[in-house]
């Protein structure tokens, strides 16, 4: 089974609405507890890897980028799986989880863990990010709102078309 087929099988079994783009990206919209956002999963059969991204809507304004960068760096140090990353040119902020699947069967649990880790990490962290962007919170204050991301997959979320 190709990685694309394995991802599509997971999404179907898990009840997600997913659109397949011409370039092979799988796009879905997530309504989390704190935020509605898009998630993208990129199965790369040639390189035998899957990467899942949870995307912050819009872009971080230039005036906030250094603060968000500091937040992301400190948050990443406490995350076991995946990472926040910021495009310093455009302000795009996202959470990424990727896995090299060379000689590894792409079973449903592995894909579920990738996707849910990305989605719950962004949704669980959003209150902290929002506090910085909209309410002028410091990085310390934002991190205090986030708590731990380690058990993020234990939460709940709803996907929508």
């Amino acid at each position: 089974m190709s990685l694309t087929d394995a991802c599509l099988a997971f999404f179907k079994a898990d009840g997600w609405d997913v659109a397949t783009h011409e370039d092979g990206m799988l796009l879905t919209r997530v309504r989390g507890e704190h935020l509605a956002f898009h998630a993208v999963v990129i199965p790369d059969d040639e390189r035998e890897r899957i990467t899942a991204y949870a995307l912050v809507p819009g872009s971080v304004a230039p005036a906030h980028r250094l603060k968000v960068l500091d937040f992301a760096t400190r948050a990443n140090s406490g995350v076991a799986v995946g990472n926040f990353e910021l495009d310093v040119r455009t302000g795009e902020l996202r959470f990424k989880v990727g896995l090299d699947l060379h000689d590894v069967a792409p079973d449903e649990a592995l894909i579920r863990n990738l996707v849910y880790r990305a989605v719950f990490a962004l949704d669980g962290t959003w209150p902290g990010i929002e506090a910085m962007l909209k309410h002028g919170a410091t990085v310390d204050e934002a991190l205090a709102l986030v708590g731990t991301l380690q058990g993020a997959r234990d939460g709940q979320t709803i996907t929508e078309a």
Binding site: T51, T73, S77, V81, N83, E85, K96, V97, D107, N113
Partner: peptide, 26 residues
């Protein structure tokens, strides 16, 4: 990078590259 990430510890100034996986149920 599609896989892994660099981290920088604020206090110590240590740079690491990290790869990891959630293998629950795997």
């Amino acid at each position: 990078l599609p896989l892994g990430c660099f981290t920088l510890e604020s206090d110590s100034g240590e740079v690491q590259f990290r790869t990891s996986a959630d293998v629950d149920g795997v």
